[in-house]
Simulated scan of single mutants.
Amino acid sequence: MASEQGDIVDVAMASPDHSTLVAAVKAAGLVDTLKGAGPFTVFGPTNAAFDALPAGTVDTLLKPESKGDLTAVLTYHVVAGNVDAATLTQQITAGGGTAKLKTVQGGELTAAVADGGVTITDAKGNVAKVTTADVKGSNGVIHVVDKVLMP
Protein backbone atom coordinates (compact mmCIF):
# COMPACT_ATOMS: atom_id res chain seq x y z
CA MET A 1 0.00 0.00 0.00
CA ALA A 2 1.29 3.42 -0.89
CA SER A 3 1.04 6.14 1.72
CA GLU A 4 -0.01 9.79 1.85
CA GLN A 5 -2.32 9.41 -1.15
CA GLY A 6 -5.31 11.14 0.38
CA ASP A 7 -7.63 9.69 2.99
CA ILE A 8 -7.70 6.07 4.12
CA VAL A 9 -10.31 5.14 1.50
CA ASP A 10 -8.10 6.57 -1.28
CA VAL A 11 -5.11 4.67 0.12
CA ALA A 12 -7.06 1.39 0.19
CA MET A 13 -8.39 2.01 -3.34
CA ALA A 14 -4.82 2.45 -4.58
CA SER A 15 -3.86 -0.98 -3.23
CA PRO A 16 -4.43 -3.97 -5.53
CA ASP A 17 -4.41 -6.19 -2.40
CA HIS A 18 -7.48 -4.47 -0.96
CA SER A 19 -10.06 -4.49 -3.80
CA THR A 20 -12.40 -6.79 -1.85
CA LEU A 21 -12.23 -4.49 1.19
CA VAL A 22 -12.98 -1.46 -1.02
CA ALA A 23 -15.92 -3.26 -2.66
CA ALA A 24 -17.26 -4.17 0.78
CA VAL A 25 -16.88 -0.59 2.08
CA LYS A 26 -18.80 0.65 -0.98
CA ALA A 27 -21.53 -2.01 -0.58
CA ALA A 28 -21.96 -1.09 3.09
CA GLY A 29 -22.25 2.62 2.26
CA LEU A 30 -19.27 3.48 4.47
CA VAL A 31 -17.18 5.43 1.95
CA ASP A 32 -18.39 8.85 3.11
CA THR A 33 -17.94 7.90 6.76
CA LEU A 34 -14.37 6.69 6.23
CA LYS A 35 -13.58 9.77 4.14
CA GLY A 36 -14.64 11.88 7.14
CA ALA A 37 -12.34 13.84 9.42
CA GLY A 38 -11.51 10.88 11.64
CA PRO A 39 -8.95 10.09 12.68
CA PHE A 40 -9.54 6.40 12.13
CA THR A 41 -7.38 3.34 12.66
CA VAL A 42 -8.34 0.59 10.22
CA PHE A 43 -7.23 -3.02 10.39
CA GLY A 44 -7.49 -3.70 6.66
CA PRO A 45 -7.83 -7.33 5.56
CA THR A 46 -6.21 -8.27 2.26
CA ASN A 47 -8.05 -9.95 -0.61
CA ALA A 48 -6.42 -13.22 0.49
CA ALA A 49 -7.92 -12.75 3.96
CA PHE A 50 -11.41 -12.41 2.46
CA ASP A 51 -10.72 -15.38 0.16
CA ALA A 52 -9.87 -17.50 3.22
CA LEU A 53 -13.38 -17.09 4.65
CA PRO A 54 -15.76 -20.03 4.18
CA ALA A 55 -17.05 -20.33 0.61
CA GLY A 56 -19.88 -17.93 -0.14
CA THR A 57 -19.30 -15.69 2.90
CA VAL A 58 -18.15 -12.65 0.91
CA ASP A 59 -20.86 -13.06 -1.75
CA THR A 60 -23.50 -13.30 0.98
CA LEU A 61 -22.16 -10.25 2.84
CA LEU A 62 -22.12 -8.18 -0.37
CA LYS A 63 -25.85 -8.77 -1.03
CA PRO A 64 -28.07 -5.73 -0.33
CA GLU A 65 -30.07 -7.66 2.27
CA SER A 66 -26.85 -8.31 4.23
CA LYS A 67 -25.87 -4.63 4.48
CA GLY A 68 -26.37 -4.58 8.27
CA ASP A 69 -24.13 -7.63 8.79
CA LEU A 70 -21.54 -6.27 6.36
CA THR A 71 -21.52 -2.90 8.12
CA ALA A 72 -21.02 -4.63 11.49
CA VAL A 73 -18.09 -6.70 10.17
CA LEU A 74 -16.42 -3.68 8.54
CA THR A 75 -16.87 -1.26 11.45
CA TYR A 76 -15.44 -4.00 13.70
CA HIS A 77 -12.15 -3.37 11.82
CA VAL A 78 -12.17 0.36 12.70
CA VAL A 79 -11.00 2.01 15.91
CA ALA A 80 -11.53 5.71 16.57
CA GLY A 81 -8.31 7.69 16.81
CA ASN A 82 -4.91 7.49 15.20
CA VAL A 83 -3.40 4.37 16.77
CA ASP A 84 -0.10 3.95 15.00
CA ALA A 85 2.26 1.05 15.68
CA ALA A 86 4.22 2.94 18.35
CA THR A 87 1.03 3.89 20.21
CA LEU A 88 -0.34 0.36 19.93
CA THR A 89 2.92 -1.12 21.24
CA GLN A 90 2.82 1.32 24.19
CA GLN A 91 -0.77 0.30 24.94
CA ILE A 92 0.18 -3.40 24.82
CA THR A 93 3.12 -2.80 27.16
CA ALA A 94 1.00 -0.71 29.54
CA GLY A 95 -1.65 -3.44 29.51
CA GLY A 96 0.83 -6.08 30.63
CA GLY A 97 0.99 -7.81 27.26
CA THR A 98 -2.37 -7.02 25.70
CA ALA A 99 -4.36 -3.95 24.75
CA LYS A 100 -8.14 -3.86 24.41
CA LEU A 101 -9.33 -1.77 21.47
CA LYS A 102 -12.94 -0.56 21.33
CA THR A 103 -14.19 -0.73 17.75
CA VAL A 104 -16.59 1.63 15.99
CA GLN A 105 -18.95 -1.38 15.79
CA GLY A 106 -19.00 -1.45 19.61
CA GLY A 107 -17.09 -4.70 20.07
CA GLU A 108 -13.56 -5.21 21.25
CA LEU A 109 -10.32 -6.35 19.66
CA THR A 110 -7.31 -7.55 21.64
CA ALA A 111 -3.84 -6.57 20.46
CA ALA A 112 -0.72 -8.43 21.58
CA VAL A 113 2.88 -8.87 20.56
CA ALA A 114 3.75 -12.33 19.23
CA ASP A 115 6.63 -13.67 17.13
CA GLY A 116 8.16 -10.21 16.77
CA GLY A 117 4.95 -8.70 15.40
CA VAL A 118 1.53 -7.55 16.50
CA THR A 119 -1.52 -9.80 16.48
CA ILE A 120 -5.17 -8.77 16.68
CA THR A 121 -7.67 -11.23 18.19
CA ASP A 122 -11.39 -10.88 17.51
CA ALA A 123 -14.39 -11.77 19.70
CA LYS A 124 -14.51 -15.27 18.20
CA GLY A 125 -10.84 -15.98 19.02
CA ASN A 126 -9.55 -15.62 15.45
CA VAL A 127 -6.02 -14.21 15.38
CA ALA A 128 -4.84 -11.91 12.60
CA LYS A 129 -1.26 -10.81 12.13
CA VAL A 130 -0.43 -7.24 11.23
CA THR A 131 1.60 -7.74 8.05
CA THR A 132 2.16 -4.06 7.26
CA ALA A 133 1.82 -1.34 9.90
CA ASP A 134 1.42 2.41 9.69
CA VAL A 135 0.08 2.94 6.17
CA LYS A 136 -0.80 6.58 6.65
CA GLY A 137 -3.67 8.48 5.13
CA SER A 138 -4.72 12.07 5.69
CA ASN A 139 -7.41 11.01 8.19
CA GLY A 140 -5.84 8.04 9.91
CA VAL A 141 -3.74 4.94 9.62
CA ILE A 142 -4.23 1.47 8.15
CA HIS A 143 -2.61 -1.66 9.51
CA VAL A 144 -2.80 -4.48 6.96
CA VAL A 145 -3.98 -7.78 8.50
CA ASP A 146 -4.00 -11.32 7.12
CA LYS A 147 -7.44 -12.36 8.41
CA VAL A 148 -10.95 -10.92 8.45
CA LEU A 149 -11.95 -10.15 12.03
CA MET A 150 -15.46 -11.16 13.13
CA PRO A 151 -17.49 -9.47 15.86
Score class of each variant (00 low, 15 high):
residue 2 A to M: 07
residue 4 E to C: 04
residue 6 G to L: 09
residue 8 I to E: 00
residue 9 V to C: 07
residue 10 D to I: 05
residue 10 D to S: 15
residue 11 V to T: 11
residue 12 A to R: 02
residue 12 A to L: 12
residue 12 A to N: 02
residue 12 A to I: 05
residue 12 A to P: 01
residue 13 M to N: 13
residue 14 A to Q: 11
residue 14 A to Y: 05
residue 14 A to V: 05
residue 18 H to D: 03
residue 19 S to M: 02
residue 20 T to H: 05
residue 21 L to V: 05
residue 22 V to M: 06
residue 23 A to T: 10
residue 24 A to E: 06
residue 24 A to R: 02
residue 25 V to L: 12
residue 26 K to Y: 03
residue 26 K to W: 02
residue 27 A to S: 14
residue 32 D to Y: 06
residue 32 D to T: 13
residue 33 T to W: 04
residue 33 T to I: 05
residue 34 L to S: 09
residue 36 G to C: 08
residue 36 G to S: 15
residue 37 A to D: 15
residue 40 F to H: 06
residue 41 T to L: 10
residue 42 V to M: 09
residue 43 F to Q: 00
residue 43 F to P: 00
residue 43 F to N: 00
residue 44 G to H: 03
residue 44 G to F: 03
residue 46 T to Q: 03
residue 47 N to H: 06
residue 48 A to N: 10
residue 49 A to N: 00
residue 49 A to P: 01
residue 50 F to N: 06
residue 50 F to G: 07
residue 52 A to Y: 10
residue 52 A to I: 09
residue 53 L to Y: 07
residue 54 P to D: 01
residue 54 P to L: 00
residue 55 A to M: 11
residue 55 A to C: 06
residue 56 G to T: 09
residue 57 T to A: 12
residue 57 T to I: 11
residue 57 T to K: 04
residue 59 D to W: 04
residue 60 T to L: 09
residue 62 L to N: 09
residue 62 L to R: 07
residue 63 K to C: 04
residue 65 E to L: 08
residue 67 K to I: 11
residue 68 G to M: 07
residue 69 D to Y: 05
residue 70 L to M: 05
residue 70 L to E: 00
residue 71 T to F: 01
residue 71 T to E: 07
residue 72 A to C: 04
residue 73 V to T: 01
residue 74 L to R: 00
residue 76 Y to C: 02
residue 78 V to R: 01
residue 79 V to A: 03
residue 79 V to L: 02
residue 81 G to A: 13
residue 82 N to E: 14
residue 83 V to Q: 13
residue 84 D to L: 07
residue 88 L to K: 10
residue 89 T to N: 13
residue 89 T to F: 05
residue 89 T to Y: 05
residue 90 Q to G: 13
residue 92 I to R: 12
residue 92 I to H: 11
residue 92 I to Q: 12
residue 94 A to N: 15
residue 94 A to I: 07
residue 95 G to C: 10
residue 96 G to W: 13
residue 96 G to E: 12
residue 96 G to Q: 11
residue 97 G to M: 11
residue 97 G to N: 12
residue 97 G to K: 11
residue 98 T to A: 13
residue 99 A to W: 03
residue 99 A to Y: 04
residue 100 K to P: 02
residue 101 L to N: 09
residue 102 K to Y: 04
residue 102 K to E: 14
residue 102 K to N: 14
residue 105 Q to R: 03
residue 106 G to H: 08
residue 110 T to F: 04
residue 113 V to E: 14
residue 114 A to D: 15
residue 115 D to S: 15
residue 116 G to P: 11
residue 117 G to S: 14
residue 119 T to L: 06
residue 120 I to V: 15
residue 121 T to L: 02
residue 121 T to E: 03
residue 122 D to R: 00
residue 125 G to S: 01
residue 128 A to R: 07
residue 129 K to F: 08
residue 129 K to R: 15
residue 129 K to M: 11
residue 130 V to L: 10
residue 130 V to H: 07
residue 132 T to R: 13
residue 133 A to F: 02
residue 135 V to N: 08
residue 135 V to C: 08
residue 136 K to S: 12
residue 136 K to E: 14
residue 136 K to T: 14
residue 138 S to G: 10
residue 138 S to L: 09
residue 138 S to M: 06
residue 138 S to C: 08
residue 139 N to M: 10
residue 139 N to V: 12
residue 140 G to C: 11
residue 140 G to Q: 08
residue 142 I to G: 03
residue 142 I to N: 03
residue 144 V to Y: 04
residue 145 V to T: 07
residue 147 K to M: 06
residue 149 L to A: 01
residue 149 L to S: 02
residue 150 M to G: 04
residue 150 M to K: 10
